[in-house]
Design a protein around this nucleic acid. Structure first.
Length: 361
DNA sequence: TAGGCCATCTGGTCCT
DNA sequence: AGGACCAGATGGCCTA
């Protein structure tokens, strides 16, 4: 049976609803095949005004449960088996509505909390824009890549100015997101080709990159293998952001001995032990490159790519590395105005305060 | 218009 | 019993 059919059946199995629908002569009580025609509080907005139900304060009994029997026969008495259910009385209906309404409110609140946390996460990503907000899935991907890339910096001493760093950041991101990151990081000449190359790779079979969430093909899986790049697999599952920010605690400890995310579940989350240490000299991520000649620029940056970037900055006009320089560049080179240095690479104290907010919640 | 993303509702499951 | 969490379903909005 199709999901829709299941839902229809489930809904129609509610005695009071069945009653209500029949009382409305099939007119709009329930809009099957589409979203239920419910009010803001869902079921709470329907089922009113049935005098029949109002009169049925006694508990009427009917059978329920057999999917094959009876649901399709309108006029015949349904042959139902299984546990008997009490029909919805008015009082029961009211309780149900109240409970459902409360549950809906809680769920909304929960999702808002989740979205708030995602927004906090967006703000500590290497690229933050209020106008070009990263989608949820891209935020998570970039966060994963960011942690991965930073941990590589710590682990192998790789320069955050290297193309490998950028490559890791853009791994598996969609083209628009890669472009946004590239715009934020002021990529060097060869990077766009690398990004395009990444996005041309077929979807992996593992992880969430293979089109989950409706993402177009070309995304790499976030977990599992990162084929053909020669890069190590991300330390996914062996290093988390708090570890990165508290690297002193794990100095000299191989990744394998770091606490796994399992150890940080809701039951076993290590306590947040005060302000975070500065994670990295993240200002070094503001990469200043030699300005390519027009020929080089066209060769390395296909025109279609250049046009997709916010603006490719000539380094001769580039500012100082670090937040100030980035601010300068952002205004000079027409990056989205709301992409600003502190939003893109918050200074350590801001990261600490934001993380503190998260931990304290 | 199709596809991506999102908010919301909903019922199920697990836990306290 | 009630809350938290989750996944499925659905419709709205936006964009290419």
């Amino acid at each position: 049976m199709s999901k829709r059919g299941e839902v229809s059946e489930l809904v129609s199995s509610l005695g009071w609803l069945e009653e209500d629908m029949s009382s409305q002569d099939g007119e709009g009580g329930l809009e099957m095949g589409g979203r239920y025609s419910l009010g803001p509080e869902g079921l709470g907005s329907i089922g009113q005004g049935s005098e029949d139900i109002e009169d049925q304060e006694e508990e009427d009994i009917y059978n329920d449960g057999d999917e094959e029997a009876g649901m399709d026969a309108e006029n015949e008495a349904p042959k139902r088996r299984g546990p008997k259910k009490k029909k919805m009385t008015r009082a029961r209906q009211e309780r149900f509505k109240a409970r459902r309404s409360k549950a809906n409110a809680r769920e909304r609140s929960r999702m808002h909390g989740l979205n708030d946390a995602l927004e906090v996460l967006r703000k500590v990503m290497p690229c933050y824009s209020k106008t070009q907000k990263l989608s949820k899935i891209e935020t998570l991907r970039l966060a994963h890549n960011y942690i991965w890339a930073l941990s590589e910096v710590l682990e192998s001493g790789q320069s955050p100015e290297s193309h490998g760093f950028i490559e890791m950041l853009c791994k598996g991101l969609s083209q628009p997101t890669s472009n946004l990151v590239a715009g934020c990081l002021q990529l060097g000449p060869s990077a766009p080709l690398m990004i395009n190359k990444l996005d041309e790779k077929p979807c992996g079979a593992l992880g969430v990159g293979g089109g989950v969430g409706g993402q177009p093909c070309g995304h790499q899986p976030l977990s599992g293998h990162y084929p053909s790049t020669g890069l190590p697999s991300p330390p996914y599952g062996s290093l988390e952001a708090s570890h990165l920010l508290h690297m002193k605690s794990f100095k000299g400890v191989p990744y394998e001995q770091h606490p796994s995310p399992k150890d940080c579940s809701s039951n076993g989350t290590p306590p947040y032990d005060g302000p975070l240490t500065p994670p990295l000299s993240i200002s070094s991520n503001f990469i200043l490159k030699q300005e390519p000649s027009p020929h080089e620029a066209e060769r390395n940056y296909p025109s279609h790519y250049l046009s997709s970037l916010p603006h490719y900055p000539p380094s001769s006009l580039g500012g100082l590395p670090g937040p100030q320089g980035y601010l300068f560049q952002a205004s000079r080179y027409e990056l989205p105005l709301d992409i600003q240095a502190f939003d893109s690479f918050p200074p350590p104290h801001m990261i600490a305060s934001q993380m503190g907010t998260i931990y304290s919640e």
